[in-house]
Design a protein around this nucleic acid. Structure first.
Length: 158
DNA sequence: GCCAACGTTGGC
DNA sequence: GCCAACGTTGGC
């Protein structure tokens, strides 16, 4: 099983929005980056665990846990000229963009902020993709060790 | 294939 | 709102 971190701007779609969604799940549409798409296409499996990260907000950080409940399939918003993420180069017969479905699992007891994660950027989290300079990928892999370490921060907040 | 211009991301 | 970092586009 793989682990992931997925970013969302809470103004657009927050973890609470996921919790309030029908069946507590959503399709992760709008990814228009090849590296992120390839992660979904090649490596994201049903049951994979996901840290849900709030970006572009006053206190960026990990707020909850979700899991992948449907593996990659065509992102239909790429075919819709009225959609913000419309891409005329995505042919419905050979879709360029894909999405997965994720389902709400649980909210963390406290947000694990970006600044808290940064405290370990030279030690336990030195390979965390999220912390790499200039990282903008909306979907990044997390190793099993990193996952467990980050989870251990949930209760140890001083 | 190079690279300047441009648009987007996202922390601050 | 600012701006650094990055991916994409398109002229050549």
């Amino acid at each position: 099983m793989n682990h992931w971190l997925m970013k969302s701007e809470p103004n657009a779609f927050s973890f609470d929005d996921l919790n309030n969604s029908v069946e507590k799940k959503t399709h992760w549409d709008g990814v228009r980056n090849y590296q992120a798409r390839n992660f979904m296409r090649d490596r994201m499996k049903k049951g994979d665990l996901v840290f849900f990260y709030h970006s572009n907000t006053a206190e960026p950080g990990i707020v909850g846990i979700a899991n992948v409940c449907r593996e990659a399939y065509p992102d239909h918003t790429a075919f819709d000229p009225n959609d913000k993420h419309y891409d005329p180069k995505s042919d419905p017969k050979n879709p360029r963009w894909l999405m997965v479905d994720i389902r709400y699992k649980r909210k963390l007891k406290n947000i694990i902020t970006l600044s808290e994660l940064r405290k370990y950027s030279d030690t336990q989290l030195k390979n965390l993709a999220l912390l790499r300079r200039g990282n903008r990928l909306s979907i990044t892999p997390i190793s099993a060790k990193e996952w467990l370490f980050i989870l251990s921060l949930e209760r140890s907040k001083s």
